[in-house]
Amino acid sequence: MTGFLAPLMFAGWAAAGADKDCGVPVTVRVVDAASEQPIASAVVRNRSEQDRRRVNTETGQWSDCALYLPDGTELLIEKGMTLEFEISAPGYTNQSISYLVRRRKNLISVHLTEMVIDMSDEDPDDIVIQFGRDKPID
């Protein structure tokens, strides 16, 4: 009866950081770099996956403990894995991050900066509409 004491202890020690039905939970929190407010429309995409995961619209957070690969396999996130995320939101510049999974407290805060497209070089006043006369040949 006592023969399994040691393995039991080691198994418990190993399982302390990760649920046996799931991997190590990883949370990505996406906020506006200027206002520090959560971005409700942000999505998080792991490079191994094909799907984009939406963040919670209230908290701006996405969290999971496994990756769902295109071939249907479920890859549990484990300590020591390197995860590569691409975080995007409409109107914001994309950000790619690489993260080494720790045993616990895997909270990644991502600050997206607003995308500014300069439209000042186009002005409708600069476009001259020719009248209906035939244009002279150069």
Binding site: V43, R45, E86, S88, T93, N94, M115, I117
Partner: peptide, 14 residues
């Protein structure tokens, strides 16, 4: 640069 930024934002990947 701006075009790539919008494209990546919409596609989620480069």
């Amino acid at each position: 640069a701006s075009a790539l930024s919008i494209c990546m934002s919409a596609a989620g990947t480069k």
